[in-house]
């Protein structure tokens, strides 16, 4: 218990006034805050649904096609074939992109009601516009908003949250690229909107059992904010003004 109190104090007293890149000048306050968020839906004319999601300087553009015609070789007789493509900004997609694609695909698979559209394809194309930390979380958020824009039936919404643990064990939410680099561990979670249950988690670095639970609890708290952001942005979108 004593140890827990210590950690608690650390989180409270933390003040991370780190120099930011680009537009994010000035101190960001305590590590437990999100960068500014922005989202624009339906900005591309060709895909069925599209969204661009910005978290601070990190920006991802997503386009969704579907439910659409599927190649016979990829056809699944009782559900939709879900495909996720992640395009890096520089060069050709490599192993890192493939692994991220797979993580995003599995997350989408968990929430998309593919059984309603058997023998069709749902394709999510993600394009990295700029990477300034928490890229996977931003990709997940962009994918979700694009799926919503395309009107693909889903069991729940999902969001991505990245937590970083720095050398002193302080928790940093939505880390920048610099914070991610300096961190001891970086954990990314995907959570659903109904019960804030975990859909996907991927971690890098060393952390203890307690720290994992802390990060998860923090991610759950953060997800509430993100889902509120989703709701407000959709409310605005379907409003008359």
């Amino acid at each position: 218990m004593e140890w827990a109190m210590q950690v608690d104090k650390q989180i409270r007293t933390e003040t991370g006034a780190e120099p930011e890149t680009g537009a994010e000048t000035g101190p960001r306050g305590p590590g437990c805050s999100l960068r500014h968020f922005a989202c624009e839906q339906n900005l591309l004319s060709r895909p069925d649904g599209s969204a661009s999601f910005l978290q601070g300087d990190t920006s991802v553009l997503a386009g969704v096609y579907g439910p659409a015609e599927v190649k016979v070789s990829k056809e699944i007789f009782n559900k939709a074939t879900l495909e996720v493509l992640l395009r890096p900004k520089i060069g050709l997609p490599g192993v890192a992109e493939k692994s991220r694609e797979w993580l995003i695909r599995n997350t989408c698979e968990a929430v998309v009601l593919g059984a309603l559209h058997p023998r069709t394809s749902i394709t999510v194309v993600l394009q990295v516009i700029s990477d300034a930390g928490s890229l996977l979380a931003c990709c997940l958020n962009a994918a979700c908003m694009a799926l919503v824009d395309a009107g693909v039936p889903m069991r729940a919404l999902f969001c991505g949250v990245t937590c970083a643990l720095d050398a002193d064990g302080n928790l940093v939410l939505d880390p920048t690229a610099k914070q991610e680099k300096e961190a001891r561990a970086v954990l990314t979670f995907a959570l659903d909107s109904v019960e804030q249950k975990l859909l996907m988690s991927t971690t890098k670095g060393l952390y203890s059992n307690a720290e994992l639970q802390q990060c998860l609890a923090a991610a759950q708290a953060t997800s509430q904010h993100i889902f509120r952001f989703y709701r407000e942005s959709l409310q605005r979108r379907y409003s008359k003004t």
């Binding site: 218990m1 827990a4 109190m5 950690v7 608690d8 989180i11 409270r12 960001r28 306050g29 305590p30 437990c32 805050s33 999100l34 960068r35 500014h36 968020f37 922005a38 989202c39 624009e40 839906q41 339906n42 900005l43 928790l171 939410l173 307690a210 720290e211 639970q213 802390q214 998860l216 609890a217 923090a218 708290a221 953060t222 904010h225 952001f229 407000e232 942005s233 605005r236 979108r237 409003s239 003004t241």
Partner: peptide
């Protein structure tokens, strides 16, 4: 109306340690 922005949002993580415990 398709665009929406949110300023930096502080997240209350004070009870995170207790929850984890």
């Amino acid at each position: 109306i398709t665009a929406f922005k949110m300023e930096k949002a502080p997240i209350d993580t004070s009870n995170v340690a207790e929850k984890a415990e």
